[in-house]
Simulated assay, not measured.
Amino acid sequence: MNPLAHSCDQTVIDRISALMQTSDSQALAAIDEAIAQWPSDTRLHLLRGAIFGHLARFDEARHALSRAVALDPDFAMARFMLGQLEIQSGHPTDALVVLQPLAEHGQDDAIRLFAAGLIDLLQNRLSTAAKFLRAGLNASPAYPALEPYIHSVLNGIGDAAGKRDSNVSPDLEIDQQANHLLLGDYLRSKH
């Protein structure tokens, strides 16, 4: 099944992405309206989950991202974001289940390497986690929206090991609340 067969036009996604940069409430209203017309469009559920995550409404974010993954289990960004949310919500077992299929993607795929790194991190294998995450930053396709998060994880690994990653600026601070602003670019170039 083609996951975009029953999808909204890219102009709808672009409009929502623009709203996400100015007003979460207006963006949510636009997403809800679009989902009423195109309930199978996984991109809409991803954006909904991103906004709810930004608003710290984690149960609603989990529901929206889970819906995107249920509609298209191969939607890598939705699966990765759901795994990330499970980690941040203190559900490592759920994160492992969500991330595992991503770790089986193509050998040099960035999302596979990121997922493998987070899986190793959850299993306290810090050295291999860092190697996978660094490799993901250098792999294709690139996921620039994820890079700040990955850099912050690498910094955390460096701190846990008593040393910071020399490839990561110690001044880099990720604004988790702004992550959803980057998804518009992702949705224009992927999936």
Rank of each mutant, 00 (worst) to 15 (best):
Q26P: 09
A129E: 00
Q21G: 13
S89L: 08
A64C: 02
G90S: 02
P39C: 15
L183W: 02
S40N: 11
I13E: 06
D14N: 11
G156N: 15
D109Y: 08
D185F: 09
S127N: 05
N155Y: 14
G136P: 12
D185S: 13
L172E: 01
Y143P: 01
A139C: 03
E86I: 12
I119G: 09
I31S: 03
D108Y: 00
Q177D: 14
S127L: 01
Y143W: 10
R188P: 07
T42P: 02
H191M: 11
F114W: 01
L99R: 04
L99H: 14
I150R: 04
L71V: 04
E173H: 13
A76P: 01
Q123N: 15
L118G: 09
L99W: 10
L19A: 05
K131E: 02
L183C: 04
L71H: 05
T11G: 09
R62W: 05
I51H: 14
L146N: 00
D120K: 15
A70P: 04
A50H: 04
M20I: 08
L85T: 03
G117F: 00
D108Q: 00
A68E: 13
V98L: 08
G184R: 07
L154T: 07
D32A: 12
R15T: 10
F75H: 03
S25F: 14
A29D: 12
G106L: 11
G49A: 00
F114Q: 06
D41M: 04
A30T: 06
G106C: 09
A160I: 09
E60P: 10
Q26W: 10
W38A: 08
E104F: 03
L154M: 08
A110K: 04
Q176M: 15
D159F: 09
N138G: 05
A116E: 04
L187Q: 05
E33R: 08
T128V: 06
L146K: 00
L172R: 12
G53R: 13
I111T: 06
P3Y: 07
L46Q: 02
A129T: 08
L85A: 07
A29T: 10
A139N: 03
R164Q: 14
A68T: 06
